[in-house]
Design a protein around this nucleic acid. Structure first.
Lengths: 244, 244
DNA sequence: CAGGTTTAATTGTGATCACAATTTTAGGGG
DNA sequence: CCCCTAAAATTGTGATCACAATTAAACCTG
């Protein structure tokens, strides 16, 4: 299966997007590829997607493209116009406020769930902490180099590596839906403000609280990370965005 | 389009399920019909769904059935086995705890959002209160008559009439996903315990707090309603359920 | 009558086609 | 140069078919 080449407005890159095809059917590969692209902001808000164009991009038939699009619409990652045209959802201040509220309601508690799921297993906790530190190091590199795409990928990787350790799949799925909804918009904002505006995250505090088994501290650190990040995004005016 | 006739184990009723076909395409009608059936517990956990059987039930081709099923899987209402067979998700204690936690994290705040959305419009508030009272009256009737299906329908109608008044679509969608996930299980529990076990809901307090514009009281009432309802469901042992 | 093996039916997935509707592009008139 | 109309291209939806894999049934053997 090929990859996305010209779905983004700039026509640049994105071709190196390679799905992990292990035992997955075609429509799942398409879904995962698009999900990652949305999560990392590779697709700009307002951009239209069509079944046939997507199928041509991936060099597949229309069926798998249809199923992938349908799934992404169902989780709110893509928007459907009244005339059933599908596009990357554009952001509104109200929607962003809802996403912020829902994230604050769900994600901090996942920290508590992680500590509960790990329980009294120092090895497992240490391994998770090292994984997070490794991702965070890459993330800092991305910030230094101004690599917006790498930043987005590593930031979501950091949070979901933590969240998935909670084994709370139902809640993690809800959170993933939220991230997919604001991913494209976040990318646009960072693209304008630069990655340095997001340099002061709370990831170090998150890892420290995790290692100390400090549930309250972990919740607070996650909440603070959400607040600083979402505030940065919300503060940026939502104007002057070329619709392409 | 026909309706579901034999998807439930008993082979009874369910035929009167009539979708509101206004300007909707076929796969949307199928989706809405299945969604309502799941929300009201017409489909038992563990029951298998197949594209062709569903298509035959509705007297349509496989395509709309596929799309509806795909959508429901995406929102967690249906479960996909490793071999890609689709079935009504069965409940576990852990999943129920997650749903309870997520509901408590999201739904009470919607009460605050409703009051904020209505603002200073007494007419609109009074109209909503009357709508809720009307639904709640039907709900009490259903409880008295032991009509489990009507109870489920009216209970969800009550909550979502309230929630949708908040205009917080993003969050309401998350909540809908949660309800769809425990709907079938709730129905089973009530079917065994009887509707009277759910007679002490907090709906009267919800309406009263709404009319008094008491945001804190509204949040508390919603949270209490969730707690009592979910506790009743969680308290019932999850055993001795005929798989078919 | 029980257990395992083979056969038959069912199923998910992907491909392709037709059709009506929408969108985009041309074209023409002011 | 702009706006409105008409033609062409694109699009979502639904239907149908083929194929491999899984599931259910039948069967036989002991």
């Amino acid at each position: 299966m090929a990859a996305i080449t010209s779905l983004d407005g700039s026509g640049t890159a994105l071709a190196e997007l390679k799905p992990q095809d292990a035992g997955q059917v075609v429509h799942e590969q398409v879904y995962n590829t698009l999900r990652d692209a949305l999560m990392s902001g590779q697709l700009a808000p307002g951009r239209a997607l069509s079944v046939r164009r997507l199928a041509a991009e991936f060099d597949i038939s229309a069926m798998p493209a249809r199923e992938a699009i349908r799934r992404l619409v169902a989780v709110g990652a893509l928007e459907m116009t009244p005339t059933r045209r599908v596009m990357i959802a554009s952001m509104t201040a109200d929607k962003l406020a809802q996403i912020r509220q829902a994230r604050l309601a769900l994600e901090p508690d996942l920290g508590t769930a992680v500590l509960a799921a790990i329980g009294d297993r120092p090895r497992q906790l240490a391994k998770l902490a090292r994984t997070l530190e490794s991702i965070d190091a890459d993330l800092d590199d991305a910030i230094r180099q101004g690599d917006v795409r790498s930043y987005s990928l590593k930031n979501s990787a950091f949070h979901f590596a933590l969240y998935r350790a909670s084994k709370a799949d139902v809640i993690v799925s809800l959170v993933e839906s939220l991230w997919l909804q604001y991913g494209p918009h976040m990318r646009q904002i960072i693209g304008r403000l630069g990655t340095h505006c997001l340099a002061d995250d709370q990831h170090k505090e998150i890892v420290a609280s995790l290692e100390a088994r400090d549930a309250a501290g972990l919740c607070a650190a996650i909440a603070a990370d959400i607040r600083t990040g979402m505030n940065t995004i919300a503060a940026a005016e939502t104007d002057a965005i070329p619709a392409t």
